[in-house]
């Protein structure tokens, strides 16, 4: 049995949860077993996880769950269902609970996996290491395993149909960590989940010029990101900062403008499927990591690109 924790902040199933279910369902097939998804709290449309391959969907009712609670609930459910592998999304939640779950289940843990395991000689699973500069194949020898799946690592696949949601009797323990408040970015597409990302660096010269970037992002339906100095100078909010010390992302498209492409920046984005770089300096290191490059002044090129995208969208 494979158990997938379908993380659903604010009661919504996010793309990362659907990816985890897709991954878990494929893994169950490979291992000749079944898979179940677990949701916690009041989750909209949890049964739709059946479409991504979950044979069963369980729910633990209750709200305001802290991470300690979530970890308990997932590991207790894994015990109850005798799950061999637990799959989580590699999110801020995953980073808070994976080790706890693994310790409770006496399981080997590998985080941020980017592919299905190779089962030809034991259980070997691949993940990017050294900030994307290499991959490591990890052999897990414990009976139980806890994997967290990197976002955008596998394409979503709808193979099944919706299933009923069953309540599971796993009590939630008392929290020791209390949530005081949450501040979420208003509107826009959350960066960690985005397929398309438009990102700006110091080359934009100041926050007042960001409208150029925002207009392109809007035309594309892309999330926005920035380099570290941009966040440090408070031109953009910190949660947009990508790179080694910020967020690591792997969208289908990463479009960078006015970013030099320092190695610490690349560390957060070099697993993107396609990289487009717009920079006026043809020697900028980013061009070495790019698929497509435009050597030119972003203040001229980007509005032109936005117009081209609009023309394309209009058909």
């Amino acid at each position: 049995m494979i158990l997938i924790y379908a993380e659903s902040p604010d009661g919504q199933l996010k793309k990362v949860a659907l990816e985890a279910v897709t991954y878990g369902a494929k893994l169950a097939k490979m291992m000749g077993t079944s898979c179940a998804a677990l949701t916690i709290g009041n989750v909209q449309d949890a049964g739709s996880l059946g479409k991504y391959g979950a044979d069963k969907v369980y729910n633990i009712p209750g709200d305001s769950v802290d991470m300690y609670n979530v970890a308990r609930a997932v590991s207790d459910t894994a015990e109850k269902l005798d799950a061999e592998v637990v799959v989580l999304p590699f999110t801020t939640t995953g980073k808070s609970i994976q080790g706890r779950i693994a310790a409770r289940l006496k399981a080997g843990a590998v985080s941020g996996v980017s592919a299905l395991p190779d089962l030809s000689d034991g259980f070997v699973v691949r993940k990017p290491v050294f900030s994307g500069k290499a991959f490591a194949d990890n052999k897990i020898t414990s009976v139980r395993k806890v994997l967290s799946l990197m976002g955008n690592a596998i394409p979503l696949e709808e193979t099944g149909s919706p299933v009923g949601v069953e309540a599971i009797d796993v009590p939630l323990v008392n929290c020791k960590v209390h949530r005081i408040s949450v501040e979420k970015q208003a509107g826009g597409i959350p960066l960690p989940e985005a397929d398309l990302v438009v990102s700006g660096g110091r080359g934009l010269k100041g926050p007042e010029n960001w409208n150029i970037l925002l207009e392109l992002a809007e035309a594309l339906g892309a999330a926005t990101a920035c380099s570290r100095p941009v966040a440090d100078m408070d031109w953009r909010p910190h949660h947009e900062h990508v790179g080694q010390t910020g967020l690591a992302i792997h969208p289908n498209l990463y479009l960078a403008m006015g970013i030099s492409g320092a190695i610490q920046h690349l560390a957060g984005v070099n697993n993107s499927k396609t990289i487009v770089v717009i920079n006026k300096d043809s020697e900028a290191p980013f061009f070495k990591a790019a698929d497509y490059g435009v050597v030119g002044d972003l203040f001229e090129v980007v509005p032109r690109l936005t117009e081209a995208v609009k023309r394309f969208k209009a058909g």
Partner: peptide
């Protein structure tokens, strides 16, 4: 858990430059 093998990603092919 043990790492049994490392691999570097396939090198990127050269950037395709587009007329600004």
């Amino acid at each position: 858990v043990e790492v049994i093998h490392f691999e570097k990603p396939a090198p990127k092919s050269a950037v395709k430059l587009i007329d600004p």
